[in-house]
Amino acid sequence: MLDDRARMEAAKKEKVEQILAEFQLQEEDLKKVMRRMQKEMDRGLRLETHEEASVKMLPTYVRSTPEGSEVGDFLSLDLGGTNFRVMLVKVGEGEEGQWSVKTKHQMYSIPEDAMTGTAEMLFDYISECISDFLDKHQMKHKKLPLGFTFSFPVRHEDIDKGILLNWTKGFKASGAEGNNVVGLLRDAIKRRGDFEMDVVAMVNDTVATMISCYYEDHQCEVGMIVGTGCNACYMEEMQNVELVEGDEGRMCVNTEWGAFGDSGELDEFLLEYDRLVDESSANPGQQLYEKLIGGKYMGELVRLVLLRLVDENLLFHGEASEQLRTRGAFETRFVSQVESDTGDRKQIYNILSTLGLRPSTTDCDIVRRACESVSTRAAHMCSAGLAGVINRMRESRSEDVMRITVGVDGSVYKLHPSFKERFHASVRRLTPSCEITFIESEEGSGRGAALVSAVACKKACMLGQ
């Protein structure tokens, strides 16, 4: 009897593995994704193909990295998701002549009506938060230079001027797309009239992360975010950046690689679950690469896999709870928690219980395998993109072996128990001629924006502006 049951459990697990095998990517698959990513990057950089390229390769006008001589107080704003952060950054000489960066910050959550109302409502709310922060720190009387981390696709015309191309991540505030974001912020500050600010720089969160990590390690020339969304930036040779005049030196390019796949480059790798996630998203047909990796989508992918296993009578005796059938019910943090389970399955059992399920031991094991399959594919897909960037940098610099540091931020990278190990191992397999160091950014977005502002202020002083 026991043997029969054991055989049935083994057969069930084997069927589960057959279904989950769809998520496995072979090294040849990853090399294919990497080569296609490089081709799209090239198209994004070139003037004649930029418009139709899915990977936009947006110039950021960040050319210099901090040298350690900029000092002063800077205000930093960070808008990239449902939370908005205001930070005071003091850049100065530390002990023994070292450079020191001290920060104080406060988080504000953005109400739904500000995210989806008008641009005026959104930026009025942001300036209200700045006003509140300055009151708390008794700094209303000071006109501070301000660095703005704005983590949406922007076409820069200068370091302090950028046109919002399109909202992502659930934002829909009308009247912002096609307009200068810094102008919208300046107008809102003017409307309030109770404080003055000098907006000197606007950067993407990947750029802010790279600059913040450069402060720790001067070989950091790539910034990457794996959180709600997924994106990367890197220092490109100016001669390859056709959208900006000049051939000397390097400029940081914001790849906006989340949109890779929007022209069909990933079609052969998309599964039924991916198509369902895409169809029910706020932007169907867009940001397809990001939807395979980002935390906004990972939990939902797992939920759809679990429903398939229920329908195949391989999980929960073929019956799903009402909660499990509800879109968004299986949160991405559950994926991390399930994979963090120590082996007694308590954590998995508790999560499934909150979803109205009474799982068996085998159910718990199957749910864990589903989570591992989805998150491992995410790590491997992400590795193909980064390997594409790094191999490109090595080739354009004609280096036999390139040493490089990548600064990384984002909740999936930082909080998932195995993502970074799987990701690092896969990147290294795909970049055999590179020695890569990964560092995690601390308060990256805010500190990085302030350091970019410090560079901009120093330049302005040198130019006598």
Rank of each mutant, 00 (worst) to 15 (best):
V101A: 13
G162M: 03
G407R: 07
L292I: 11
E9V: 11
W99S: 15
G446Q: 06
A450K: 03
L315W: 09
S321C: 13
D3L: 12
E93N: 07
S340T: 09
S375R: 06
L75Q: 02
I110V: 05
E339V: 10
T49A: 07
I225F: 03
S445H: 00
A282E: 15
E128T: 06
Y273C: 15
T49N: 06
D344N: 08
Q26S: 15
Q323H: 13
N83V: 09
S433R: 11
V427A: 14
V16S: 14
A176E: 07
V401Q: 08
E248R: 07
A208K: 00
L309H: 00
L164V: 01
E22W: 11
F438V: 07
T362Y: 09
E216C: 00
V33D: 03
T209F: 00
T362G: 08
Y289D: 05
Y349E: 11
M87H: 15
F195D: 03
H424S: 10
K142L: 05
F330N: 12
R327A: 13
C457W: 08
K414M: 15
H105N: 06
E17Y: 06
R186C: 01
F260Y: 05
H317A: 13
Q347K: 08
V203Y: 04
I130N: 01
A21M: 05
P284V: 09
R186Y: 00
G229S: 01
E51H: 15
L30K: 09
L184W: 00
E28T: 14
V305N: 12
V408K: 03
T405Q: 12
I159F: 04
A21E: 11
T49F: 09
E112A: 10
M41T: 12
L357N: 05
P432N: 06
V241Q: 01
S336Y: 05
E245K: 12
C129R: 04
W167A: 05
G299H: 09
H218S: 14
L144A: 05
S263V: 10
M37V: 05
E237N: 06
S375W: 01
F269I: 07
A10K: 09
D29Q: 00
S396V: 12
T149K: 01
Q239S: 12
S321I: 13
V154K: 01
S383M: 05
V203M: 00
G178Y: 00
Q24N: 13
F150V: 04
V302T: 15
V55K: 03
G68I: 15
S280F: 07
K12W: 11
C233T: 03
G407V: 12
E93R: 07
Y297F: 04
P111W: 02
A370T: 06
G295P: 08
Y215F: 15
N391I: 13
D400P: 04
R191A: 03
L45T: 02
V199H: 00
R369E: 12
E14I: 08
K140L: 05
G444K: 04
K143A: 03
Q323V: 12
R43D: 04
R358L: 13
R5G: 12
E290M: 03
G193V: 01
E435G: 08
G448Q: 01
E128G: 06
R275W: 13
K190R: 10
G285D: 11
C213A: 15
K420M: 11
A232N: 11
F423Y: 07
R36T: 09
A378R: 05
R275G: 08
M115N: 01
L430N: 08
K56D: 05
D311F: 02
G444E: 03
A282W: 04
I366P: 03
A114P: 08
L271N: 12
A387N: 03
K32T: 14
E290Y: 00
L134T: 05
Y215M: 15
R368W: 14
K414I: 14
A329Q: 15
D4C: 12
V89Q: 03
G175D: 05
L271Q: 03
L266N: 13
F334H: 03
N350E: 09
E279W: 13
G464E: 13
K190D: 05
D124Q: 04
A370M: 09
K39R: 13
L314M: 13
W99I: 15
P153G: 03
P66G: 15
L75F: 07
H317N: 05
G170Y: 03
E312P: 06
L386V: 07
